[in-house]
Design a protein around this nucleic acid. Structure first.
Lengths: 69, 69
DNA sequence: TACGAAAGTCAAGCTTACTTTACTTAAAGT
DNA sequence: ACTTTAAGTAAAGTAAGCTTGACTTTCGTA
C-alpha cells in the first residue's frame, strides 16, 4: 500500500513527530508507514484522512489484485 | 467503527460466507466485522470498497473524536 | 417436528499494527 | 568541529486482525 504522507507532510512543513502528535501515535509509527513497513489500521487511516481533509483513497493507494467476481 | 456490510450484503442477497469468499477471508471475519467485534485492516477495507464499487467512507463510518489541530 | 442453511460464538494460534527505549545517520547552522 | 533537529532503524513487548475447527442458535420449510 503506497501513501502520500510524506508529500502531504512536506506541503504543510510538518515533521514526522508533528504528524505523529496530531494523530496521537508514535513517531516511529509514522516513519514505518511512510517507509512502507506496514499499513495503518483503518481507524488510523480515517484519522489521517480527517486531518488532511481528503478521502482515504486520496492518501492511500491500494495495489492488491482485483477479486474475481 | 460502524459499517454497512450487512445492508450491502442484503441488497445483493449474499450470505456472510458468499462475501467472505469474494473477499478471500474467513466467514468468521465477516461476522466479527458486521457485529462490530473489530475493524477490518486497511487492505481489507479497500477490497470491500472495490467489491461494492464505492468509497471506503460510504461503507465504514468512523466515530472517534476529532483531533485538536 | 425434524431438517438444513445461515448466523453467531468461542478458543487457540499466528501475523500485523503499534508502543517504548535506544541507538545511528544526515543535514544544517553556528 | 560541534550541536541540534529530523529521519531512519532495531529489539522486545502488547494489542488488534485474522485463521481454523468446532459447537450452538435461529429460522424457514418440508
Amino acid at each position: 500500500m503506497k501513501n502520500r504522507l510524506k508529500i502531504l507532510r512536506a506541503e504543510r512543513d510538518w515533521t514526522q513527530a508533528d504528524l505523529a502528535d496530531k494523530l496521537e501515535v508514535s513517531r516511529q509509527t509514522i516513519n514505518a508507514i511512510e517507509k512502507g513497513k506496514y499499513d495503518p489500521s483503518l481507524p488510523l487511516a480515517f484519522k489521517v484522512a480527517r486531518l488532511f481533509e481528503m478521502p482515504i483513497e486520496a492518501i492511500f493507494e491500494d495495489e492488491t489484485a482485483v477479486v474475481a467476481g
